[in-house]
Simulated assay, not measured.
Amino acid sequence: MFSEPPVNHMDSTDLNKEDPSLESLAAVMREVAQAEILPAFGLVQARAKADGSLLTEVDLAVQQRLIKALERLTPGIAVLGEEMPESEQLRLLERASADDAHAGEASAFWALDPLDGTSNFACGFPAFAISLALFRKGQAELGIIYDPVRDECFSARLGQGAWLNGDPLQCRRDCQRLADAMALIDFKRIPPERVPGLIRTGAFRSQRNLGSVALDWCWLASGRAQIYLHGAQRLWDYAAGRLIAAEAGVITRMLPPGLAEPSAGLTLAPRLAMAAAHPALFDQWWEHVGLPWRE
């Protein structure tokens, strides 16, 4: 059973309410997954959205139920869900940025991906998750990802650590050579001309693609892979997972396409993600990938 380690709650003046416990969030996510996700696994029809990604009625049902639950747990804190209209998402980010500009005010919102890995879910491939992160003043401060197939709940609090089902989570640091690393790479979002160089002989030991960004980050955090590359992640994709990985000791970097340096501020624009489980390994991976990729 998930049990959250003791933590000191943040000053309630920041949110006008204490953060909900990770245990309470995990319980809600498990309940929703058991009611909406698992009974429909591999049985629902999916349709393509404007960006080409898939959507099912389960995505919408999970988002609706979790928004209602979060309104109850943290009244007054808005939810930015993947399946909301983009205009509504942009208004929420603009409001949060405006709040950030006033030193005496605290901005906070939830970033929710109700079903990360919808394509997997729809075709019966067992790799998908619910992803949820709490942002304050432009930074993710709490993240929780629930994998209903494995009943694994990954979580983190900024500066306090990461956990898997309540047990401390630390990435493995025993792999320090690129040739020994297990890689998670999403080739679909990488320029085709860059792929041959990435997969040349001796580049890494082996490669996988889970089809779920949230689980990619969590599996890095838990030592199931050592290096990572994904060409285009959105805010709800990486919000919780990157925090969990970083709190577990993974070296991470999020970059605007075509640039070698991060940009400040929150955005809905896609970001390239790179990561490695050891600083020396990250340096080798960075050199091998050869960023920035210019168009």
Rank of each mutant, 00 (worst) to 15 (best):
residue 142 L to Y: 03
residue 190 I to K: 04
residue 92 L to E: 00
residue 20 P to M: 00
residue 158 L to W: 04
residue 117 G to A: 09
residue 293 W to T: 02
residue 25 L to T: 02
residue 22 L to T: 02
residue 47 R to A: 09
residue 89 Q to N: 13
residue 145 I to N: 00
residue 246 A to I: 05
residue 208 R to P: 01
residue 95 R to F: 12
residue 218 C to E: 01
residue 111 A to I: 03
residue 185 I to T: 07
residue 12 S to V: 14
residue 266 L to M: 14
residue 43 L to T: 14
residue 247 E to T: 04
residue 240 A to E: 01
residue 77 I to L: 09
residue 209 N to W: 11
residue 131 S to H: 01
residue 1 M to Y: 12
residue 218 C to D: 05
residue 82 E to A: 08
residue 143 G to Q: 07
residue 88 E to H: 11
residue 9 H to N: 12
residue 88 E to I: 09
residue 126 P to H: 00
residue 216 D to Y: 10
residue 91 R to H: 11
residue 171 C to K: 07
residue 138 G to A: 07
residue 31 E to C: 14
residue 122 A to W: 07
residue 59 D to Y: 02
residue 69 A to H: 09
residue 222 S to Q: 13
residue 103 A to Q: 08
residue 195 V to K: 12
residue 128 F to N: 01
residue 288 H to F: 04
residue 23 E to R: 10
residue 137 K to D: 11
residue 268 L to V: 00
residue 236 W to G: 04
residue 139 Q to T: 11
residue 61 A to L: 07
residue 287 E to Y: 04
residue 215 L to I: 06
residue 257 P to I: 04
residue 99 D to H: 12
residue 135 F to N: 01
residue 284 Q to I: 00
residue 264 A to Q: 14
residue 13 T to H: 13
residue 145 I to S: 06
residue 261 E to R: 11
residue 261 E to Q: 13
residue 185 I to G: 10
residue 173 R to S: 14
residue 183 A to W: 03
residue 193 E to K: 13
residue 114 P to I: 10
residue 71 E to N: 14
residue 233 Q to T: 13
residue 261 E to D: 11
residue 32 V to K: 02
residue 188 K to T: 15
residue 211 G to E: 06
residue 62 V to F: 09
residue 239 A to G: 09
residue 28 V to W: 07
residue 272 L to E: 09
residue 216 D to H: 15
residue 207 Q to T: 12
residue 32 V to F: 07
residue 34 Q to E: 15
residue 122 A to L: 04
residue 275 A to E: 05
residue 23 E to I: 02
residue 214 A to Q: 01
residue 236 W to R: 10
